[in-house]
């Protein structure tokens, strides 16, 4: 399962597809890669502007947010089936989801929450990931999240927990450098140190985004320009091992097209990939 390149060819820089910026995304001449939130896709097929990207050979990766792979309950077969159908509809080479849980006791939390880093929690996570993989037509990439709190009684450090998860499931890694930055900043750690401990040969693609400061913490909200420190992490990652694709996530406070294009250029320059804006 080491052949990431067979599952994810080198696609360079991309951007998360959202209806609000669909026109900006369409007008990127060099675009070869985008991602769409799987739960936002209508059951009867992708929106016309997204289907048009697929039809011009842009790789479109469905990105799940509500499978709750780290949840105590077995994964919901209907949700897995929807993710699988999205992969088929978009001819996606892989799909992605989070190392997180999103509901408990029948209550939706409304966001991705961290799982305890214990042996039991890892066993549940591994079982849920394998059950999901068994129903998917394509490989699965897993994304560690930004966490504003930690569970007590951790039995693993973050890098060891993730490495063992990937080893036991054969899953790929979706590395979010904005999450790495947020976690390190909020814990007073060096973000680059985590890069040295993760299996970088498993990285399918990378997320970057900008966040904001509240309550004395950095929140990865995807509503602000990507901060310089995250671009520095992009360069640090690419100096170690350049991932096949990197993409910008924006989920609100959408800026004018020119600003998004400048951000995409900055990302391309930091990674050493060609600019896709013209």
């Amino acid at each position: 399962m080491r052949g990431v390149r067979r599952m994810m060819p080198e696609l360079g820089v991309g951007i998360g597809w959202r209806p609000e910026i669909a026109g900006v995304v369409r007008d990127l001449p060099g675009l070869r890669f985008t991602e769409v939130v799987a739960e936002s896709l209508p059951p009867d097929g992708p929106p016309a502007l997204l289907a048009a990207l697929r039809d011009r050979d842009v790789t479109v990766v469905p990105h799940g947010t509500r499978l709750s792979l780290g949840g105590a309950d077995p994964v919901d077969p209907a949700r897995v089936a929807r993710l699988a159908a999205a992969a088929d509809a978009l001819s996606a080479p892989l799909v992605s989801e989070h190392v997180a849980f999103v509901r408990g006791g029948g209550v939706e939390a409304g966001h991705l929450l961290p799982v305890p880093r214990t042996r039991d929690s890892l066993a549940v996570l591994v079982a849920n990931v394998r059950a999901t993989q068994a129903e998917l037509p394509v490989p699965l990439a897993l994304e560690p999240i930004a966490a504003l709190f930690d569970w007590p009684d951790a039995e693993y450090e973050e890098a060891d927990f993730l490495t063992e998860l990937l080893d036991r499931t054969g899953a790929l890694l979706l590395l979010d450098l904005a999450n790495v930055y947020a976690n390190a900043r909020n814990r007073g750690q060096d973000p680059a140190a985590l890069l040295d401990r993760l299996p970088l040969d498993r990285v399918a693609y990378v997320h970057v985004a900008g966040g904001s400061e509240h309550d004395g913490r950095y929140h990865d909200t995807h509503t602000d320009p990507t901060p310089p420190e995250v671009y520095e992490l992009v360069a640090a990652l690419c100096a170690r091992r350049r991932p096949p694709a990197l993409m910008l996530e924006r989920d609100g406070h959408y800026p004018p097209a020119a600003e998004l294009r400048r951000e995409l250029d900055a990302l391309a320059d930091a990674a050493g990939y060609p600019r896709i804006t013209g």
Binding site: A72, D120, V124
Partner: peptide, 21 residues
């Protein structure tokens, strides 16, 4: 995983979600 593992995790996750929302 052992059935206990899911049951205990379920209780702890439910408690945490309740505290959060």
């Amino acid at each position: 995983p052992a059935p206990d593992a899911r049951a205990e995790l379920a209780a702890r996750q439910a408690e945490l979600v309740a505290a959060l929302v």
